[in-house]
Design a binder for these strands. Sequence first.
RNA 1: GGGGAGGUGCCAGAGCGGCCAAAUGGGGCGGGCUGUAAACCCGUUGGCGUUGCCUACGUUGGUUCGAAUCCAUCCCUCCCCA
Length: 404
Amino acid sequence: MEPEEQIQLIKKNTVEIIQESELLRRITSKGSLRIKLGVDPTTSDIHLGHSIVLFKLRCFQDLGHKVILLIGDFTARVGDPSGRSKTRKPLSIKEIAANARTYREQAFKILAPKKTEVLFNSEWLAKMNFSDVLKLASYYTVARMLERDDFSLRYQKKYPIGLHEFMYPLMQAYDSVAMHADVELGGTDQKFNLLLGRQIQKAYGQPSQIVITMPLLEGIDGSKKMSKSLGNYIGVTEPPYEMYGKVMSIPDELIFKYFRLLTSLSEEEVDSREKESKEGRLHLGKAKEELAESIVSFYYSKSSAEAAKERFKAIFKRKETPTDIPSYFLASDEMKEGKIWIVRILQLTGLANSGSEARRLIKQGGVKWDEKIVKDIGWEVSPGESHVLQAGKRKFIRIVRKHY
RNA sequence: GGGGAGGUGCCAGAGCGGCCAAAUGGGGCGGGCUGUAAACCCGUUGGCGUUGCCUACGUUGGUUCGAAUCCAUCCCUCCCCA
């Protein structure tokens, strides 16, 4: 494909390309470029927020460029301070290795495995000695390091900053040197680190990489960046129904952003839906259904998406009890004379974390036994063969007697 | 090395001898409403078979009838000076 056409495809959904003219020049002169994505194995699961960058990498692959997934197994010992207000606790080698493995597997839901090279930065970082490190550190100043938003914020708020945290951006930048990266991708929160890569490459006598930043995705709470630690994420390996339900729970304002960044719809198609909804011709609930369906279809299949939708409707629209709910096998030694206290069973099944919580749930009318609201905290249940216990609107457990 | 400030519940942040299981906000959970697990409203939010009891305000001791609040010790953080 012609370089100019490639640029058009690459540009879609990006926030910034530094420098676009360089990118064009380099594609023209080199043909196939080395595209770097640094992966932080401090978390294992990939969520829809990560997928945005991965889709962009996929786009590069489809254009014939070389995509390199860099697992930051060494940098993970520090933990990226980006956007953090606290020092991260370092992970063990074992945890990092396990995370890296799942990360790679999950990334291949989007990337083409054969066209992806996977590298680990311990390969070169672990070998550096102190003079190498000093040399690297000398290329940057404290004042400039403190320009970074998160560092300066922490500095102003008088939160501690470990010296080693200053090394993180430098290590990431050095990775670009070691890898001879032509392009590095990242979320907008990575801009500082990505730009530092340009500077450090120059210091080591290499051409500076082109930096491409992608938008950050708000999580299902609608305000904060999607992340596992905030619990507002939708993981790419979550079961279809969970995934569907979570998409259905995003705030309305996010619907079209999700469409743009997470589905294969063209910009025109998204625009027209947005326009229709503004004019009242497209109901937001419908739009969200379509969104949820297409996301689940991508990671699973059309049929599982439909099944997820059906189940969602059954529970929330028709308020039915779902059929595929997990079972809890109630042993007879958990009962006294064939009876068990309702509070106890809520705890046993994990529907409540404590007796107090169970009581609270009952008091607030959130507990149902076979679709009937439980009102009496002291209720001693005499369970038959099979019952359905429900806590809140969406937590169900089937209680089955165990005979042995 | 010297001087000063501070460490409170999931988080932020009040309290500064009894009225404190600890204000307020955020988050979480439950209910209502809804196309929705959006928005909004209401309630709730340490544990315990619960009108009471137990454990909690960095650590360990102490003062006191009584401590998150006072004293000492240790650990940790921040600031200023050098």
